[in-house]
């Protein structure tokens, strides 16, 4: 799998500082009449940055996330992930980039109900063809990192909401992705658990991970260094947070 990373070719590379960049991206749905979900968005997300995307529902923030996450393709414009232009890739290669370079964290956790925590975390490695023993040890070490080293054999229904989201975060981390995409990661959690999850993201950011988080809550967005406000398919403004909110990190 690793050999295929050169598939995209060197001529499509962009600024190597960028984990993700978008150039004049449009996404149009045809539902009777054309709907411009994204209407000319250009954006760069630097490596190691912590960005929040805010906007009302229907503003296009989900579409933006889907495009960066290689779940969808732009109608026009270019999307680069870790230097590769994903809009030009075949579905197969796009899936490969998604598996290797993107880590998803969802509001509803989206864990496989019949798999244990460790198996859930190891799932992306299954599709990369990593051997069973390596998957196991790697998944366990990442679970340990997010404070669930003693829950590796538990199934999602045996875990609390916060624990489930930490499993999901571990799964996002396990492939060492270029960017972690978090879609309302605290939306289904009580505020104290949400605070702990934000603390975890903060630590991941401190460790050098690139994070893009979609949220509609101002106080959650303020944990990021930068907030992108999206409205009607365009970037309304980009707000730099001078001193991002910090969670006092307690030991897990």
């Amino acid at each position: 799998m690793a050999a295929s990373h050169s598939d995209a070719g060197p001529e499509t590379t962009t600024d190597s500082e960028d984990a993700v960049s978008l150039r004049d991206v449009r996404k149009t749905y045809y539902l009777g009449e054309p709907v411009h979900a994204l209407d000319g968005v250009s954006l760069s997300i630097h490596r190691g940055s912590y960005t929040a995307v805010m906007g009302p529902s229907g503003s296009g923030k989900s579409t933006l996330l889907n495009l960066i996450g290689c779940l969808d393709t732009a109608s026009e414009g270019q999307v680069f992930v870790n230097g590769k232009e994903v809009s030009a890739l075949s579905e197969r290669d796009r899936t490969r980039v998604r598996g290797d370079e993107i880590g998803f964290v969802f509001q509803t956790f989206n864990l496989m109900p019949k798999l244990t925590a460790a198996e859930n975390v190891a799932l992306p490695l299954v599709f990369q063809g990593v051997s069973r023993s390596k998957r196991k040890s790697h998944a366990e070490s990442v679970l340990d990192e997010v404070g669930l080293g003693d829950r590796t054999g538990h199934r999602p229904n045996e875990l609390s909401g916060g624990q489930r989201q930490r499993v999901a975060i571990a799964r996002a981390l396990v492939t060492d992705p270029a960017i972690i995409l978090a879609d309302e990661p605290t939306g289904n959690l009580d505020s104290e658990t949400g605070r702990q999850i934000m603390g975890l993201f903060q630590r991941l950011h401190d460790e050098g991970n690139t994070i893009l988080m979609v949220t509609h809550e101002r106080h959650i967005a303020e944990h990021a260094e930068r907030v992108i406000h999206v409205l009607d398919g365009t970037i309304e403004r980009i707000e730099e947070i001078e001193s991002p909110r910090r969670v006092e990190i307690e030991a897990f």
Binding site: L71, F104, N110
Partner: peptide, 16 residues
């Protein structure tokens, strides 16, 4: 369906 979505999100090919 949802499990299929999860697998695809973490890199499962159609073939898988």
């Amino acid at each position: 369906t949802r499990e299929i979505g999860i697998m695809k999100a973490v890199g499962a090919q159609n073939r898988d």
